[in-house]
Amino acid sequence: MIELKDVYKSFSGKDVLCGANLKVERGESVVVIGGSGSGKSVLLKHIIGLLKPDKGTVIVDSTDLSQINEDGLNEIRKKFGMLFQSAALFDSMKVWENVGFGLKRHTHLADSEIKEIAVRKLKMVGLVDVEEVMPSELSGGMRKRVGLARAIAMEPEILLYDEPTTGLDPIMADAINDLIIKMREELNVTSVAITHDMKSAYKIADTIAMLYNGVIIAKGTPDEIKNTSDPVVKQFIEGSAEGPIVLEGIKK
């Protein structure tokens, strides 16, 4: 279970999160939607302890992340897998070394066993015969799949997705959505995704939450969100330039 309670965060005087609250139950798939620069990534990074809140608490499985030291945090992180927006593969390592990185560091398995697991995880995300390739030789969609294979290599309980479909063509984006659903069904993980791709959000979410002006302004099932009367949420999900949402730096 993940809970963000009244989380505040600002960078160089600019408030990004202003009392954000979010609760994710075990096994649930929550998608946080919000415009570019709304602080979605910042929110996600708080969940895995990459950022610390200025005020407020982040609780993962009844542990308050601000109350534990580096070693404790690393233990908690072993429960997580995270897929980054740009996949964030280690470009100095081969694909299988990327996938097996966590295993190499945190288990006593031999390289041959790690490679075997990596190949299996790659197959799960639909990739074969790429284990010896360098990440720079892969396409965007393939990189995301490798990133996902790396995220699931340690068999995590929680998967975090940072804009999983951004920058992909519609067909590849849908294939990634299918993979996210498959991961959830096969691995029984809790997942938190952030996106501004509504098609993806409707497809993968049990619950959609909207982040606006640093707070979660709405939360509900995809159907509830679709039928919302909140003008801000309505404008966002319909993708309309006209409405109450003020685009930063743009004059209407």
Partner: peptide
């Protein structure tokens, strides 16, 4: 620097590696 801007350093942390 490249590892930082491409989030590889963040990725290390998420993989419980300081």
């Amino acid at each position: 620097g490249t590892m930082r801007v491409t989030e590889q350093i963040d990725a290390l942390e998420t993989l419980a590696t300081n």
